[in-house]
Amino acid sequence: MKYMLMFCKSDMDDRRFEAMTEAQRAHLFQQVADWQTEYQSSFVDQGYRLGPAQTATTLRHKDGGVIITDGPFVEGGEVVGGYSIVDVPDLDRALRIARAFPACPTVEIRPVLQ
């Protein structure tokens, strides 16, 4: 069986991260790298960190049209149901693929940090 692990965080976690010293961050990154090494054989996709919420764009199918808005999806009751990672030149190409996805009315698009 395959599982997608969705790592959630809040504004408070972001602030805690920002307040860290360089050394503390390096230590944390090392811990993550160790974790990846330890479970290497189990990963199908090692995963990436996503851009911050301000870089999010949300696409919604509504009344036969598409509405594109600035920001992450926020409506109550909406949860992440799956994910794809696409490699395209710019946001418009990503939006084109997202709007063509037939099985979900709302898609949040965020750049993946490499």
Binding site: G51, D92, P111
Partner: peptide
């Protein structure tokens, strides 16, 4: 904010 979003999000 606008400039940052254009750059970080890849608005063409």
């Amino acid at each position: 904010r606008a400039r940052r979003k254009i750059k970080d999000t890849g608005i063409p």
